[in-house]
């Protein structure tokens, strides 16, 4: 058989290529470009080599922000994934309540991110916020604008409130796709509800949970809007996550070179973690 060569095909993929070039490749290369140069404004650039990368990787400020970021992401994953699975297991699988539950679960996901930040900002105010006032009234000395511990507590609570639904919805989708026959077979075997969870539900949810963890990992690692509205990184630097720090360097101090280098390191860290996680989770599935 002769292969027909049709060079016109390139013409048809051109729009996509242009689109990708402008929204991904060009900006990324700009950042790469900045990361190896120094500028004092006026569009004058000097070659800086890997100096910014060395500076960032050695800076305690970056280490601290990265540490805070890892702590934040680790904590919310450790809470949201099990909690999401538990809620999904408790949701009804049939009947009129299914849609009610689904709509309720989808609600937090529909709220714009800066609104979520503003909501919790007000919610937590010690003098007039429902949460802040209540906690203070019952005897807790709660003030998220002054005490780092309280700021973290509020930040994590906010993220759990906002994003657990996503895990719930994905886990639920995994659960309802299990045919009834599996549950019947387990009942015939006399399997306990723990055994049903361990040997039927969990393995059947593995794929969607992998996706859920990946999404939550990447999103929480990139999180900016909500903490920036809620605490602005404070008190002090206590809740300054990577993205907040990055914006401070890039826009606050206008250090384009270090900010660009940091962006690339940031990007590579996310890529690395996601890749490791995905590889480990899908290892045994190739055949």
């Amino acid at each position: 058989m002769n292969k027909t060569v049709n060079q016109k095909a390139w013409f048809f993929v051109l729009p996509v290529l242009i689109l990708v070039a402008f929204n991904a490749i060009v900006p990324l290369m700009t950042v790469v470009n900045y990361s190896v140069q120094e500028t004092f404004g006026d569009n004058v650039f000097f070659w800086a080599g890997l100096r910014w990368f060395e500076e960032i990787l050695r800076s305690p400020r970056f280490h601290d922000a990265l540490g805070r970021q890892l702590f934040f992401t680790g904590t919310i994953l450790a809470i949201e994934v099990p909690l999401g699975v538990i809620i999904a297991l408790a949701m009804p699988r049939k009947g009129p309540w299914v849609s009610v539950c689904l709509v309720l679960m989808a609600m937090p996901l529909l709220i714009p991110w800066n609104v979520v930040g503003a909501m919790w900002n007000i919610f937590g105010l010690p003098e007039l916020g429902l949460l802040g006032k209540t906690l203070n009234t019952i005897g807790f000395d709660y003030n998220y604008t002054r005490q780092p511990g309280d700021a973290w507590f509020t930040l994590i609570l906010m993220d759990v409130w906002h994003w657990t639904s996503l895990v719930v919805l994905l886990a639920y989708a995994g659960l309802v796709s299990i045919p009834d026959a599996y549950y019947q077979a387990a009942r015939i075997d006399g399997a306990s509800s723990w055994a049903i969870f361990r040997y039927i539900q969990l393995p059947k949810m593995k794929r969607v949970l992998t996706i859920a963890v990946l999404l939550r990992f990447m999103d929480s690692f990139n999180i900016y809007t909500e903490p920036s509205v809620l605490t602005g990184g404070g008190p002090g630097n206590s809740t300054t996550l990577l993205s907040i720090d990055l914006v401070k360097i890039a826009l606050g101090q206008f250090d384009l070179g270090p900010a660009a280098a940091m962006s690339l390191i940031y990007f590579l860290v996310i890529l690395l973690f996601s890749w490791i996680f995905y590889t480990v989770m899908t290892r045994g599935e190739e055949q």
Binding site: A181, A185, I188, Y199, P203
Partner: peptide
């Protein structure tokens, strides 16, 4: 003391 076999192939997936 009952056993049942289904139209779908029902086995424990990760065993």
């Amino acid at each position: 003391n009952v056993s049942m076999v289904y139209q779908q192939f029902i086995n424990y997936p990760n065993m």
